[in-house]
């Protein structure tokens, strides 16, 4: 089955984001689920649709072979599944990830910051450097998009001037 209409692809990716948000709620990551629902299904879909408006909405027929990509994907997947069994099983409290810094955050967040939502206290306080870096990345990406799209087709105009003179 192949979706040639890119409009359909974009809408399906929005649906997929909502489904992913529900999966994240089941996995207790409520903050992440909220972000995924608003970002993945909201802003991403709008930006993809805006790009479709600027470009084309149907995919051209391609003569690429699918065997080599399929082979690469299957081999990668097999290698990853083979190495999965060294991971601790799902949902155990004894996994190494729960023994490192997480208990400290959970025990001391309320005393040190009086913030009950540990995700917020870790995000803004314990790991403030991380968040500062991420905010800077968003800032940089925004500047990049503005540079790329606001440079208002100057080259076209230059070409027009050259053509007319």
């Amino acid at each position: 089955m192949r979706q040639r209409s890119l409009f359909g692809v974009v809408i399906l990716s929005g649906v997929y984001s909502f489904l992913m948000a529900s999966v994240l709620i089941v996995l207790d990551a409520v903050d992440v689920a909220m972000t995924e629902a608003s970002v993945g299904a909201g802003v991403s879909t709008v930006l993809l649709l805006a790009t479709l408006h600027l470009t084309k909405t149907t995919e051209a027929t391609s003569f690429r072979g699918t065997m080599i990509p399929l082979f690469v994907a299957v081999v990668t997947g097999a290698a990853l599944i083979w190495s999965t069994f060294d991971l601790p099983p799902f949902g155990t409290a004894e996994a190494p990830i729960h023994k490192h810094v997480a208990p400290y955050y959970l025990e001391n967040s309320l005393r040190e910051t009086t913030v009950p939502n540990v995700v917020t206290s870790v995000l803004a306080d314990y790991r403030g450097y991380d968040t500062l870096g991420e905010t800077t990345v968003i800032f940089t990406a925004g500047i990049g998009v503005m540079l790329l799209l606001r440079g208002a087709r100057r080259r076209d105009r230059a070409a027009d001037v050259e053509g007319s003179s």
Binding site: T35, V39, N117, T120
Partner: peptide
């Protein structure tokens, strides 16, 4: 600070 949410959302 009390429920899910924050600056990003």
């Amino acid at each position: 600070e009390y429920g899910p949410g924050g600056g990003f959302q």
